[in-house]
Design a protein around this nucleic acid. Structure first.
Lengths: 341, 341
DNA sequence: CTGAAAGCGCTAACAG
DNA sequence: CTGTTAGCGCTTTCAG
């Protein structure tokens, strides 16, 4: 016999009744917590009644009236990826600080699922969404978004016409390139990420710029898909060129793949070959030798995106805001600290 | 001048008007998609009107009527931890498959924040919550939970009186112990996790059982907090005992810490020392030598928990269900494959 | 300072 | 097969 309490949840009416006031008075103490002028005794009676009845307002009802749900959605390609989960933490933290809950959705790296989730989200009446697009959003979905008239900001990756928050990928990559040149590396190859991801493009471009500024150029440029496996296979392939003295990957996962590929073919890192990545994911700390990389502030990106989104929600200003957060070089053991040659 | 469309969102009324039917007819086509018998021409007119007006029902209104939000919450200690984010993926996937959205909250490893989030969640009127408790929930919060009358299941970790889904930690750990004995290890130490986490206790107990069944006993048992750092420090400490031939940690993070500590003090793994962990987190795959560990199906735990929760929601059966998912040994290079001694 | 009343948009009986 | 109607629980003018 489990004590299934069928007694319904107390409503604002019940509270009003018990406190001997009208429901609007109760509503007032719920909402205008501080300001509203009201006889203290009244407020007290209401508060007492609320606690006595263990009252808690029904969100759906408030939402219905106020036309606002206080829920934002975060749509990422893969929540089990360390950067996205850190980003999620940031969004959640910054959001909850200002009274927003975060609906986290996983597009499973599929544009289809992304679309699908998006339309569900709009239907869910979230107040806004933070999107990390899987690829380059197409015209149609962008329009659908626009029509829906709900605020969207993208994080980490850009999409045309949508406010975004990202790291300074170009700058970080440029610095990395210069740093490598400074260390004496000359014959470097670059393994970039997928073309349709703005982040990958920026990093590649920044790297090329950095090299160019030092009067150098890459020995080779290849494209992978940002996975460990693609790092291994591209690494193995590219390392056939024995004259290479450094390989730089567009992200840490690929860099680690290269690292392992290098070890597998008997090149010592960093003595024979320098390796560098990008992201500074936590995992990287567990890999030996420690990876030289660029720290991307994912948590901060999340927080920043959440704040930007909430700002958009509160005052529907159409400004195409864009934020670029600074990154920082992390010199590990996968490059020679004291210089090469 | 941005084209700010102030035209309000279409409501069910608008659709009805445009289709020349009553709102209940519209409601019918929205809800009883398939079954409901209705003249095809009518349905078509309604559907046309809906698409023409770009109509999408207001969730708050439906929720209010149906007393169900179709949202479940997942409350984890740290979403950026690989097991929890995998678990989250599982919940999300299984949930969305049956029409549920997932609100992911991060208790930031703090019981306080956990409490706080919990009460917000209840207020949010989620239909249920999947909880990974930070510690051992105290009496008061359990009661509050119970009073709230909303279904809760815990995942990965147990809490008294709450249905739960977990891995077979005891069994996996027992198997691991036997396996090590089988490989010839004799003087093994165990580094467990925090006492207040059921998972840690189960793993320790299972390990002791396994050793006992083989007529052995641990040389030493210590407790850490499941972090990499605690693995390093405990490992360093315990490795002073040069006669140790294996160290088993309660999770992979600690095991990796031990691995690095061992290398730092000049012990070769696995030649001089066997090391094993538990979880089989993705990260582990990036560490060399590859870790011997026990694969815990986090994704499946998430899925299973979501399904259990939804079942609970749909038919409020008080059954104290408990599910224990099987785990599997993963033999890596951090133990001698061909036997020791 | 407090109460009465009008809905928010939708669903679900209950009548045709 | 379709329309009418009565709220779900709450916020918010508008009057006292």
């Amino acid at each position: 016999m489990n004590r299934r309490e069928l007694r319904k949840r107390a409503t604002i009416r019940d509270v009003a009744l018990r406190a001997g006031v009208s429901i609007s008075t109760v509503s007032r103490v719920i909402n205008h917590k501080d300001s509203s002028q009201m006889r203290d005794s009244t407020r007290e009676r209401v508060v007492d009644a609320m606690t006595a009845l263990d009252y808690t307002p029904v969100k759906a009802a408030r939402d219905l009236r106020r036309r606002r749900t206080h829920v934002v959605a975060l749509l990422v390609p893969d929540i089990s990826n360390p950067f996205f989960s850190l980003l999620a933490r940031g969004v959640e933290a910054a959001g909850s600080k200002v009274g927003y809950s975060t609906l986290i959705c996983d597009s499973n790296n599929s544009e289809d699922e992304e679309q699908q989730h998006m339309s569900i989200l709009l239907r869910q009446n979230v107040d806004g969404v933070i999107l990390v697009p899987v690829g380059r959003p197409d015209r149609a979905s962008l329009e659908r978004l626009d029509r829906s008239n709900i605020p969207v900001v993208t994080a980490d990756r850009r999409a045309p016409g949508i406010p975004h928050v990202e790291a300074d990928n170009t700058g970080g990559s440029r610095d990395l390139a210069k740093c490598l040149l400074g260390l004496g590396y000359r014959r470097v190859a670059y393994l970039g990420g997928p073309q349709e991801v703005s982040t990958a493009e920026d990093r590649l471009q920044g790297f090329l710029d950095g090299l160019a500024e030092g009067g150098a150029a890459p020995v080779a440029v290849r494209r992978g898909d940002f996975t460990y496996d693609s790092g291994v296979s591209l690494g193995t392939e590219i390392l056939r060129d024995r004259r290479l003295d450094a390989v730089v990957a567009g992200n840490d996962l690929m860099a680690i793949g290269v690292l392992h590929a290098a070890i597998a073919v008997g090149r010592r890192v960093p003595e024979d070959l320098g390796v560098a990545g990008f992201d500074d994911i936590q995992w990287a700390a567990l890999v030996r030798p420690r990876l030289t990389t660029v720290r991307v502030p994912f948590l901060e990106i999340g927080q920043c995106a959440a704040r930007a989104l909430v700002a958009l929600i509160l005052s529907r200003e159409g400004a195409e805001e864009q934020t670029r957060l600074p990154v920082s070089l992390v010199i590990g053991d996968s490059t020679c600290a004291q210089g090469k040659t």
